[in-house]
Amino acid sequence: MEISEIKPGDVLFVWGKGLVEETIEWVTHGPSHCALFIDNKTLAEAQAGRTTGTALLGEYLAEIDRLEVWRDETLTDDERVQMVDYAKNHFGIRYDYLAILIDLARFKLDIPLDNFHEGKRRICSSYINDIAKSVGHN
Rank of each mutant, 00 (worst) to 15 (best):
D114L: 07
I100M: 09
T54A: 12
D77R: 10
F116K: 06
D96V: 04
A62E: 14
Y127I: 00
L109F: 12
M83N: 06
D114C: 01
D85K: 12
E59T: 11
R106M: 13
Y97D: 08
A55I: 05
E63K: 15
L104T: 10
R121F: 00
E79Q: 15
E79R: 07
P112V: 01
L98V: 14
R106K: 15
D114F: 04
R80L: 08
G58V: 10
N115S: 14
C124D: 05
E63N: 14
L104E: 02
I93K: 15
M83F: 08
S126P: 05
T51C: 11
K120D: 12
P112Y: 07
T74V: 04
C124K: 06
D78W: 00
D110I: 05
P112R: 04
C124N: 05
R122T: 07
G58N: 15
V69P: 01
M83Y: 07
I64C: 11
R122F: 05
D114P: 00
R121H: 05
C124M: 02
L67R: 10
A105L: 15
F107V: 04
R106V: 09
R80Q: 06
D114Y: 03
V81N: 09
T54W: 08
Y86D: 04
I111P: 00
L75P: 07
D78P: 00
E68T: 13
W70L: 10
I100R: 00
F91T: 04
D65Y: 04
D85H: 08
I64H: 09
L75K: 09
D110K: 14
A87R: 03
L56K: 11
R66K: 15
D77L: 12
T76S: 15
A87P: 06
T76K: 03
E59I: 06
N115Y: 08
G119Q: 02
L67W: 02
E59P: 03
E118L: 05
L113P: 10
